[in-house]
Simulated scan of single mutants.
Amino acid sequence: MMPLYAVICKDKEGALPIRQENRPAHLDYINETGIVMLGGPLMEDGKMCGSLVILEAPDLDAAKAWAAGDPYGKAGLFESVSVTEWKKVIG
């Protein structure tokens, strides 16, 4: 099994329209790349405010490249993106 990486993205203020417009391309990218193990929106007060994606990738550079290629990021949805190795312990 390859290492796991957490991609944690925080949306820009008022970015919901960008998220909605680019969702189909984002989901296609996930399916095409085949390295996403888990993923979904971060929530705050019942509203989407970011994304958490767990990747299975050969190394940190590959995980960062995946994040850089995500249509959400390319569309300017995010205020910040961090990619860090993650170790699954439970679940």
Rank of each mutant, 00 (worst) to 15 (best):
A6R: 01
M37P: 01
P58K: 09
C9T: 15
V36P: 04
M43S: 15
D28A: 11
A15C: 13
F78D: 00
M1L: 09
E56F: 04
G39P: 05
D59F: 14
K88P: 08
G73L: 05
K12Q: 09
D70K: 00
L27D: 01
H26E: 02
L55K: 02
E21Q: 00
E56G: 09
A68F: 11
G69M: 01
E79T: 10
M1P: 07
G46M: 14
D45W: 11
N22G: 12
S51I: 14
D70C: 03
E21W: 00
A65K: 13
C49H: 09
L52S: 11
I54Y: 10
L52P: 04
A57S: 06
P24M: 07
V83M: 09
L4P: 02
V89H: 08
S80E: 06
H26F: 03
R23H: 06
G14Y: 02
G39Q: 05
A6T: 07
F78R: 07
E32A: 15
E13L: 12
A65L: 11
V36G: 08
D70Q: 02
P41A: 15
G76W: 03
P41D: 01
K10L: 15
E21R: 06
K12T: 06
K47R: 14
I30E: 10
R23Q: 10
V53F: 03
P41S: 12
V7Y: 00
G50W: 01
E44L: 05
R19I: 05
C9W: 10
S80C: 08
A6C: 14
W66L: 02
E32D: 14
R19Y: 08
W86S: 03
M1E: 01
P3Y: 00
I8D: 12
L16A: 13
T33E: 13
I18S: 12
C49N: 10
M43C: 15
D45H: 14
A57W: 04
E56S: 06
I8E: 08
G40R: 09
P24H: 04
I30V: 15
D28G: 13
M2T: 14
V53T: 05
G39T: 02
S82P: 10
K64F: 00
P71A: 07
A25I: 03
Y5W: 08
N31C: 15
P41I: 12
G73R: 04
S80F: 10
P24R: 01
D11V: 11
S80H: 06
M1A: 13
E85I: 04
L55R: 06
L42C: 14
T33L: 15
K64D: 11
D28M: 15
E44Y: 13
M43G: 11
E13C: 09
